[in-house]
Amino acid sequence: MANDVTAKLAVLIDADNARPAIVDGLLAEVAKYGTAHVKRIYGDWTSPNLNGWKSALLDHSIQPMQQFAYTTGKNATDSAMIIDAMDLLYTERFNGFCIVSSDSDFTRLASRIREAGLIVYGFGETKTPKAFVSACDKFIYTEVLVGTEEDETQAAPAPRPATELRGDTRLINLLRNAIAAASDEHGWAALGGVGSILSKRAPDFDSRNYGYPKLSGLIHGIGLFDVEERQFGNAKHLYVRLRGKGK
Results as ranks from 00 to 15, higher is better:
1 M>I: 14
4 D>W: 12
7 A>Y: 05
8 K>Y: 02
9 L>C: 03
12 L>S: 07
13 I>D: 00
19 R>V: 13
20 P>A: 04
25 G>F: 00
25 G>D: 09
27 L>M: 10
30 V>E: 01
30 V>S: 06
32 K>Q: 13
32 K>G: 12
33 Y>F: 08
36 A>V: 03
39 K>F: 05
41 I>T: 05
42 Y>K: 00
42 Y>R: 04
42 Y>V: 11
56 A>H: 15
57 L>P: 03
61 S>A: 13
62 I>R: 01
64 P>Y: 00
64 P>C: 01
66 Q>R: 03
67 Q>D: 07
68 F>D: 03
68 F>T: 07
75 N>I: 11
76 A>K: 11
81 M>E: 04
82 I>G: 09
82 I>E: 15
94 F>N: 07
96 G>C: 01
97 F>K: 00
98 C>L: 06
99 I>H: 02
100 V>C: 06
100 V>I: 14
101 S>C: 03
102 S>F: 08
108 R>I: 13
111 S>R: 12
112 R>M: 11
112 R>W: 03
112 R>H: 09
116 A>E: 12
117 G>T: 11
120 V>S: 03
123 F>N: 07
125 E>F: 09
127 K>F: 01
128 T>K: 04
129 P>S: 02
132 F>G: 07
134 S>K: 12
135 A>L: 04
136 C>Q: 04
136 C>R: 00
137 D>Y: 01
137 D>A: 01
139 F>M: 05
140 I>D: 03
141 Y>S: 13
142 T>F: 10
142 T>E: 09
144 V>R: 00
146 V>A: 07
157 P>T: 06
159 P>G: 06
163 T>L: 15
163 T>I: 15
165 L>N: 00
167 G>N: 10
173 N>K: 03
176 R>D: 13
176 R>K: 14
177 N>R: 01
178 A>F: 02
181 A>N: 08
185 E>P: 05
188 W>V: 06
192 G>A: 10
193 G>E: 14
196 S>I: 15
197 I>N: 02
198 L>T: 15
200 K>M: 14
202 A>M: 10
202 A>K: 08
205 F>G: 03
205 F>T: 09
206 D>R: 00
209 N>Q: 08
212 Y>Q: 08
213 P>R: 04
214 K>A: 13
214 K>S: 12
220 H>G: 13
221 G>I: 15
222 I>F: 01
222 I>G: 01
224 L>W: 04
226 D>H: 12
227 V>D: 10
229 E>D: 08
233 G>L: 06
234 N>S: 15
235 A>K: 04
239 Y>A: 15
241 R>D: 06
